[in-house]
Design a protein around this nucleic acid. Sequence first.
DNA 1: TATCTAATTAGAAGTGTATCGAAGTAGGTA
DNA 2: TACCTACTTCGATACACTTCTAATTAGATA
Lengths: 199, 199
Amino acid sequence: MATVAREAMSDEQFTRLLQFFQVFSNESRLRLIGHLANGERSVGELAKLLDLKEPTVSHHLAELKELGLVDVRAEGNMRIYQLNAKALESISKDIFARPNLAALVPKSELNEEERLLRAWVKNGRIVHIPAQEKKKQIVIRWLAGQIDPARRWTEREFSEWLGDFNEDYATLRRYLVDAGYMARENGIYWRTPENDPAS
Amino acid sequence: MATVAREAMSDEQFTRLLQFFQVFSNESRLRLIGHLANGERSVGELAKLLDLKEPTVSHHLAELKELGLVDVRAEGNMRIYQLNAKALESISKDIFARPNLAALVPKSELNEEERLLRAWVKNGRIVHIPAQEKKKQIVIRWLAGQIDPARRWTEREFSEWLGDFNEDYATLRRYLVDAGYMARENGIYWRTPENDPAS
DNA sequence: TATCTAATTAGAAGTGTATCGAAGTAGGTA
DNA sequence: TACCTACTTCGATACACTTCTAATTAGATA
């Protein structure tokens, strides 16, 4: 999660993601999906399994169908419901494989600092350390926010961790210390908990 | 998704999963998380960004904190909230990396057929094709449920797909056709849409 | 101490949603 | 045709949730 917005999500995508979570956020529906994952079931079967009345089950199934998560076929006058394996797979892969929460923020809501940040920080890496003091501070402030305040590091550990952000870990480390975000004593580094000078 | 229950989920796990979905199923909270993903923020900042009153934001943050999704630190009389990267990572990995929806069904709710099935189907593979006719039918019925009814296959494609379930794809294919689940014409196979003989 | 700011807690209003019984629809069967 | 079964649609109820204002707590400042 040590990432920054790559590409902000469109309103459409955001709505779809929200709908998805809403569908899974109800106990009955979640159990319903669980049962369907074990194989196709009729409405009556599901009602018995879930201890709900048929209209209730029918209602939930309609919502799942709306989102394309289940398919129906008729068998006599029964309706056999089945999970749409493809739809589920694509959702779990596309959305959660790279859970870039920063992308959840609609473009219009990114503030100035965040917009600027996206020029230098890509895919969680600092692609370029800006020279201009004000811009540099923005990047360093962001980097400081990525540091676990509870953790204690040796210089070697800290350098290694910083190396994931930029090959010039030494410069990053110096900036962080100079700006007061990191403290050091007896070779141990830690994130200063308060008195953030950048705010 | 072509899997069957491996290990049914405990009530505890189920509840936790449900809570997780509930937290993400609210628009304000989802946007809140998106903003926090861009860096730490105070309650007031978040209230402005989301166009909500502070008590509302505070309320949502309390819920997120309850689930360990955010951490707080004090700075002056402000409270700076930050996403708990570790918690989020572990959730997205542990839960969604193998979205075994079948495992959503609490153990007690597994019916007879499902319980039996777990003896022969493990991790989505048929580890053993039972000889006894009735048991065999259960397995074949399950397998039929995994087949996309919209898809058309050549014999080669179908055999290959079946091979993922058991190395003896020829036997599986014959059983499926004999039981009436699959039809074939001009070398093309498809899942018969209705008149399921096993019900 | 008094005062200001930032946040939380408490309580209330309004909205949404899960569930149900009753009524309606459609296939199967006599 | 009439009747049965399985399901869906409709309309009502009840509970949960989001959001707000008002009151309270706690840190900073004079």
